[in-house]
Every structure is written in C-alpha cells, then in structure tokens.
Design a binder for these strands. Structure first.
Lengths: 231, 231
DNA sequence: GCCATGATCCAGTAATCTATTGAGAATATG
DNA sequence: CATATTCTCAATAGATTACTGGATCATGGC
C-alpha cells in the first residue's frame, strides 16, 4: 500500500503538508512570540519598541521576529535605521483569537491567573460589545481609548475619545463629570483599562471596562475609525 | 512602576497569561499532532487506530496524545482495554481551520506540495460549497461520501450517499450512470476523494471534488446529518 | 488467578529550540 | 570618512522535545 518510489507517496504528501502547517504553529509556540503577535495586532512596531514592550533583549526580540518572519506571520518595512515589523496578514489575528478563545474555554488556569492579579476584585465591571453599542446609542456612556496616542491614531472604536492612561489623572476634566466612562485598551489581557478604571474610581467617577480591543472589534465585523482604510 | 513584590507584577501577569496560551500553541507545534487533530476532527479514535493512520509507533502516538491532553485539546473515554480519544472542544477545529486558512494564504510551499503530488493535473475539478448546494437543489449531481463507513455514520453532509473509496470500483452500479458525482472526504488535504475521482474517470463517469469535509461544513454553519446531535 | 490485549510509562539518544553574548551589517549624521 | 544608531547574525551552552524499544499497568475473558 505504500512504496518508496521517487514521486511522493500518500504518506510523504501528508508529511509534507502537515510539516508546512506546522511551520505556523511552531512559530506561535512561544509565549514571547504570542505576546509579540498580540502587540503587533495593534499596529506596526520597531524592533526596539517591541523588545521593550515584551521585556526582552533587543537581540532576542530580533531572533523571535526572524522566526515569525520565516513562517510568514510578519513582514518588515525599513525606514532609515529603523525596521518596522507588522503582521503579514489579518488572518494571523484570527489564529491568535481562535487560540485565545480555546484557552478561555479549556484552561482554567487562565482565569485563575487573571483573578490572582486583579485580586479577584470585581470592582472591574465590564460591558459586552453589544451592550456598549446600545448604551452609546442612548448617550448613556462616554467611550474612552486609554492606549498610547499612536495606537489610537492607528485605529480606534467609532466615537471613542483618546486619553492615554498615563495622562488620565491629569486630564479628568475633559470628561463630563456625571458620565459613566467605558474604558478599553488593546484587548482582554491588556492592563491599561484596568489601571484607567482604578484612576477613575479613585476620583469618584463611574467607569466600566470593555474587554475587546480594536483588533477584536474589527474581527467581529464592526467598523473601526481611522488607521488603515478598510471600507 | 514595576516592583518585585510577592504579588504578581504587570510583567509577571503577562508572562503567566501568554505562558498559558502557549500551552495550546506548543501542543499544536508538531506536524504529527496537527495530523492527529485533523483526524480526530472526523470523530474519536483509539490510540492504535490513530497510530496506524498517522504512520507512527503506538508508543509515540500515545506520547503525542498525552501532550495534547495536557493542553486540554483532547479528551479520553475508556471502553474495555481501548482508550478512545476525541477533541475536547469544537473550538479546537476552529484553531486548526484558522491555521490552515493562514497557511493557504501565506505559504506558497503548500500549493507547490499539492501540485507536486497531484502532478498538477487539473483533472480534479472542484466545486465550492455554495455551488454544490445550488446543483444539489437542481438535482444535477449526486453527492458521494467516500470515507470509511464509520466516519459516514458519525456525521455526513445532508443527502450524501456512502461508498468508501476502497469499495467504489465494485459498487459503481449503485450510482446512476449519467449523473455527475461530487465526491468528498475528510477535508482539503485528504486524498480519498482524489482517488475516488480517478476511479470514476477510469470508468468513464463524470466526477468533481468538494474540498470541504464535514468538520468544515459544520464550522461554516451548515447542517450535518447523523452523528452527535447538534440542533 | 492467569493470560491476552491495548495503552502507558520510562530510559536513553539524537535532534531541536532558546537565551545570551559579542561581532558585524546597514543606514544616517556631521 | 568617521561615528552613532538600529538591527542582524554567529557561536555557545542549557533546556526541551522526538522517537525507539522494553517494561509496566489496566481491563476483560477464560
């Protein structure tokens, strides 16, 4: 049923195919590279910026990026002495989201880790995307993007204002005093919105959290404002 | 802004989170395990059957299954001396499909591998899912499931007949002589439907291929007949 | 209890992957 | 052209993983 002939046998064909797909899964088989992908989902970054953000040495980040590039998950653009990395395909975000969804359903440790960090204080009330749209339509809430300014400019939720979390304490006056603020950042495992809520609450403001970030919002087929055009 | 205190720092939190998700991607970072997942998408299997199917030793297959189980991608059921493995969650199929879609878009080598095996003979005309539904409605074609009988019984496309590819040559009489046959098997990288087309063509029959298998069909939100109930 | 079967576990080797270091490209500036 | 900046590459050592063959475990039949 199987021979060792020169042309591909059925087994050799399957080996070759799964080997190819494994290039992708191997590239993603590292916490550091997953984090890199998660960051790049927000927009392109230089090697140096990425290394800083994920807490790795420059050389190490560069190595990880190389392996991502070999698997065609990221692409580069040179600008002077800087090299900007970006996701090679929006489908990369889909893979990451699928992995995340699976982890959330199957890995109880993830919930435990989150609870441990946040002191399982449910002071951090959250809002679903559908809920948010209804409340926004009713004018009940103010939507606030607390990511760095550059990320806001690269694309944000429709109607969102931008106050990076680092400036929030100083710019509270820009928010209507009685409004409920819905803060969001990069995505479900990004901490900036939690920090923002802490600041809001410390100043007696009402604040909720939206877990989704712009990549999730876009993946769900909802429109994103600014940044790369997309219909 | 960051300390080494006993409770989790922001960095330690992120490390812990991505580490958890990497359990999943690491479990999938092997061609053998990807193939196992692809086979299990068709239904549960014993260790022995799986080992045979993916061309690995029993011990090795068992090891791979253990690592998949540790990552919560598969689950087991014991039946006498047999242990049946199955996917722990339909979301596992979604992850695999997302990886496949990405590979098909980014990795040109995959196309090349397929072309090399099939001798890039486009004798294997294929049909899209939408196309098929229209043609089925018009009574233009006969839909044929060429997978092993057990897999057909575990769930098949609505209206499909079952003739395992190994029996096809002997059972051609069961197919209306003038009908165009649309053959499908497990999915895009399964070879059984290609073999079936070769047999059909050798007997002067008209045959097309549907790339999708039942897992893909179901993932696309289309109904599947028989097997585990699902609305 | 004893045996057969299916599966798991274990030890050892080879191969692969990761992080680190330091050297060295590529590019811009003066 | 010299120099600084940003990034990549090569070499190393340490850790992890893959596969094999053999021992062991769990279950069911006798």
């Amino acid at each position: 049923m199987s021979s060792d002939a020169a042309p591909l046998t059925a087994r050799a064909f399957k080996d070759a195919v799964y080997e190819q797909f494994a290039r992708i899964t191997k590239a993603l088989a590292s916490p550091v590279r997953l984090e890199i992908v998660d960051v790049l989902a927000q927009g392109e970054r230089t090697v140096d910026a990425l290394a800083r953000e994920v807490g790795q040495s420059l050389a190490n980040a560069s190595q990880h990026l190389r392996s991502l590039k070999e698997a065609r998950l990221v692409d580069t653009r040179r600008d002077g002495t800087f090299v900007h990395y970006r996701l090679a395909d929006p489908q990369v975000i889909e893979v990451w989201r699928a992995v995340r969804a699976l982890g959330e359903r199957q890995l109880a440790d993830i919930e435990r880790t989150v609870a441990a960090y946040l002191g399982d204080a449910d002071a951090f009330e959250s809002v679903t995307a559908d809920d948010l749209q209804r409340r926004l339509a009713d004018g009940e809430v103010v939507l606030l993007d607390v990511r760095p300014d550059a990320e806001y400019r690269a694309g944000h939720l429709p109607g969102a204002r931008s106050i990076p979390v680092g400036e929030l304490a100083d710019r509270l006056a820009e928010l209507p005093p009685d409004a409920t603020v819905v803060a969001y950042c990069r995505g479900p495992y990004c901490l900036m919105s939690y920090d923002a809520l802490a600041i809001l609450h410390a100043h007696g403001r009402r604040g909720l959290r939206l877990a989704e970030g712009p990549p999730d919002w876009r993946a769900a087929g909802r429109p994103v404002q600014g940044g790369p055009e997309r219909g």
